[in-house]
Amino acid sequence: MTYRVELDKDVCISSGKCVADAPHFFRFDADELSEVVADPPELPDTQLEAIARGCPSGAITLFAGDTPVSID
């Protein structure tokens, strides 16, 4: 299983934790808000869960298929 990642820029507070944790997967846009790079590499689900959990604003949502994954 590989999760699909959605990042809500309206919620992002630009902490940069996701970019620091996975710089090949996330980057900053021109407004220094995080976004997923085009054609991101595959990351282990456990790493994506940790990154989503570590996002202070809860801007990152993981999906298994169309179903949001609970990271609590």
Binding site: C12, I13, S14, S15, G16, K17, V19, A20, E32, L33
Partner: peptide, 10 residues
Amino acid sequence: RRIENRLFRR
């Protein structure tokens, strides 16, 4: 926070 966070990154 968005603006100040730029100073508080890894």
